[in-house]
């Protein structure tokens, strides 16, 4: 999903705007994915498998931040003879995720309406 390419001014602008656009979406995706328990690496793989690649250096600190905000809970547990920190959506996280998804759908609907209206204006 990496669409960044050369470093022309246009592509730099696109990369910067894309980063802004993705920032909020990633949080929603991480919260949604953590309805089932994951540790950092498997969460990253699960997101990548569904087309949402995210850098480790972005994802792992984000998990910590979301846990500090009490949207996630975590626990150290042994798996395959190794200790790993597993994260899961907290009840408060569930509530916030529901609100964020409602906001996401509202924004999505508005943008679609704007695009349809502008398309109709161009045709007429």
């Amino acid at each position: 999903m990496d669409t960044s390419s050369n470093s022309t001014p246009d592509s730099q602008i696109f990369d910067s705007l894309r980063l802004e656009l993705r920032r909020g979406c990633l949080i929603v995706a991480v919260l949604a994915q953590l309805k089932t328990e994951h540790y950092g690496y498997t969460l990253r793989k699960a997101l990548a498998d569904q087309g949402l690649a995210i850098e480790e250096s972005t994802l792992y600190p984000l998990l910590r931040r979301l846990e500090t905000q009490q949207l996630l809970t975590s626990q150290w547990r042994e798996e395959d003879k190794r200790n790993k920190r597993f994260y899961k959506l907290s009840p408060q996280g569930e509530t916030i995720l529901t609100q964020l998804l409602a906001e996401w759908n509202s924004i999505n609907g508005s943008v679609n309406n704007i695009l349809q209206n502008s398309h109709a204006e161009v045709i007429s």
Binding site: G40, Y41, R85
Partner: peptide, 15 residues
């Protein structure tokens, strides 16, 4: 933080 990073990187390397 280092323990968590170690676990994630080790899992990635194992993979």
């Amino acid at each position: 933080v280092l323990n968590e990073l170690r676990a994630n990187l080790t899992a990635q390397i194992d993979d």
